[in-house]
């Protein structure tokens, strides 16, 4: 049975002229309520290679240029059109919210490089932990761990310069030298040069930060088809 390969969810139907898909198949849209999915008809999933990854990315970039809001879908998402419709319908509120967040915006990716992770500061709510029971101490430790996994304290000196540019942030900590963390920032379209200038002029001490982009907002797309 024929299936559809999904490239992205869009905030609107793109104008004609967005080209073909990664297997040269014509692109078309599947509409479910207010959601629009950009798809191509395929029978087998594409093989993983540099060429197919780049081709998928090129399709997403063309779509991103053609619409105001895009949620890129990861490589290899092939499913029946009815399954796609069911998935989108089931998660419509969440996906609409995500589309609203990325509208008119794009992603910058910041790699935080260094020889050692930033020193862990004792969270303020751990003060007096001795007075807590073992369960509460466990929960406090879990909370601190959860919070730390989503923070990049190494970037503190950079924060003031980025504050006016960054609309949303996702952090993935690696904590294995030399890649300490990957920080994904959502910025207004057209703001990449100002963002790069801010990163390059910041003094982060022993840590280095390398920014790339702009990219379609891959890190801000929910796992719609997971």
């Amino acid at each position: 049975m024929s299936e559809v390969y999904v490239y992205a969810l869009l905030g609107q139907v793109p104008p004609p002229g967005t080209g073909a898909g990664l297997c040269e198949e014509p692109l078309r849209v599947v509409r479910v309520g207010e959601l629009v999915a950009a798809v191509g008809d395929m029978t087998d999933p594409p093989a993983v290679s540099e060429a197919t990854l780049r081709a998928h990315d090129a399709v997403v970039r063309r779509l991103a240029d053609a619409v105001d809001a895009i949620l890129p879908v990861r490589f290899g998402s092939l499913l029946s059109e009815s399954s796609l419709a069911d998935l989108l319908a089931a998660r419509a509120p969440e996906l609409s919210e995500a589309l609203a967040l990325v509208a008119g915006r794009e992603q910058m990716t910041l790699r935080v490089l260094g020889d050692a992770p930033a020193a862990v500061e004792t969270p303020r709510d751990d003060v007096g932990a001795d007075a807590l029971g073992p369960g509460a101490r466990y929960m406090a430790a879990r909370r601190a761990e959860w919070r730390r996994a989503r923070e990049a304290p190494e970037l503190a000196p950079l924060r003031p310069a980025l504050a006016a540019l960054v609309r949303a942030e996702r952090v993935t900590r690696h904590d294995t030298p030399a890649l300490l963390a990957s920080v994904y920032h959502l910025i207004d379209r057209g703001g990449a040069a100002a963002y790069q200038a801010a990163v390059q002029s910041a003094d982060l001490g022993t840590v280095r930060a390398v920014a790339t982009g702009p990219w379609p907002p891959y890190a801000f797309a929910p796992e719609a088809l997971g």
Binding site: D57, F75, T212, A219
Partner: peptide
Amino acid sequence: DTSLLEVVDNLLTKGVVL
């Protein structure tokens, strides 16, 4: 080729399908 590294990270970051 940093752009390729980033493409790989962007497209395979969830690592579920692949």
